[in-house]
Nucleic acid binder design. Sequence first.
DNA 1: TTTACATTCTCACAGCTTTCTCACAGGAAG
DNA 2: CTTCCTGTGAGAAAGCTGTGAGAATGTAAA
Lengths: 232, 232
Amino acid sequence: MQNRNERVLIVEDDAQIKNFICYSLKQEGFSYSTTGTAQGALSTLVSEQIDLILLDLGLPDFDGMEVIKKVREWSDMPIIVVSARDQDKEKALALDNGADDYLTKPFSTTELMARIRVALRHLYKAGGNIQYTSQTVGGLRLDFDKHLVFLNEKELHITPMEYSLLVLFFKNVGKVLTTRYILKEIYGVGYGTDTQALRTLMAGLRRKIEENPAKPRYILTEIGVGYRLTDE
Amino acid sequence: MQNRNERVLIVEDDAQIKNFICYSLKQEGFSYSTTGTAQGALSTLVSEQIDLILLDLGLPDFDGMEVIKKVREWSDMPIIVVSARDQDKEKALALDNGADDYLTKPFSTTELMARIRVALRHLYKAGGNIQYTSQTVGGLRLDFDKHLVFLNEKELHITPMEYSLLVLFFKNVGKVLTTRYILKEIYGVGYGTDTQALRTLMAGLRRKIEENPAKPRYILTEIGVGYRLTDE
DNA sequence: TTTACATTCTCACAGCTTTCTCACAGGAAG
DNA sequence: CTTCCTGTGAGAAAGCTGTGAGAATGTAAA
């Protein structure tokens, strides 16, 4: 299992901790890249083949939380947060934004390595590192890189909320998504059960992507359950 | 009838902590079962449909670590260890044996819930745990993952109640299900003896899946007892 | 600061679907 | 034949969804 030589990206601005992690990774047979900024992390991810991210939240340029969100728009790769912040709310927020694990400094090598192994185990079970750049359903195309939506190769103007709703459907093509699940994913946890807002949002989106919003072709309603992006 | 919640099994012998966790889970809308022993955990897993395990390592009968190993022999369902032991080696061992996360007591509700959400996210992405994503009986196919029903590969429109009825039969192919059992499973306890509603529901379902509802091919009536999905 | 504009959420209501209740007919079993 | 059980259609009640109008919020330009 260790022969696959997974590549870890370490995003950490404290040189001492960075070296400590590097040393441990080398011992275990991982290869790695390092960067000290959020900006650097994002550009490394584009230029190199990375399997897992170790992310510090307190970065000099902008917050690590933003890195999580950005990465999650186009990849499901494991993200382990390594941070000095040990507030419960901070942890929960990072995890809900898409992080897979959260370690509080100071931590031990033993534990970090074990948690990396868990994350990679999940990755392989899910079928490897799938990165999307563009995905098409019928005449509808979503470009994850550029944040653009095309209908029959004509660019559509899409609002941020509508975009995240579309991303959710494109990541789950063919599956019925329950209203509750959708709400949790796009509004975050705790912003409960306001199905009305979702209905309005859906109406707006359909007006843009469907020829006849009353008889939708792409996003279908499953009455009593939720919605589904058709996969034919 | 949004009763399709995930079910958590809590394995914990300290009553106080157990209650604390139960309360939190209820708040978040999860359903749960509890047990205080390793033996109890294993038998619950066989008899009930569990989605996630919260596991204490220090159990009265035998060590929680054994539960992890046993479960991993046949299932990939998420296991979150909740333990007072905070030795790094202990953590690493549990994680390497197959646990997906490890929380040290004392922990906060906020963090526990966030980590449960992470685990369920992984489960959802992997496409359900040990359940087949799709199951077929004759020309009838039920796709659990996508929440869809097909008859001879043509998609059927199925209402939520009809769907949960079908799921119940697919989980018990070939077995006779008594009317009372079906009622309890579909409507929940306390809905008494309203067999009439079930008859109407069944009529509607048969109209959709049977060629000749008067002479059903899939769901047969066992007079005086209940119904049975044939296993041919 | 004011103004204009886009986005998102709230409200009210119409229309549709699902679900349950009722009444009755046809069968099976004794 | 009688009794109990099951299936079916009609229709009422309850619940769910889509939509337009407008309020609230946020953003950018003048």
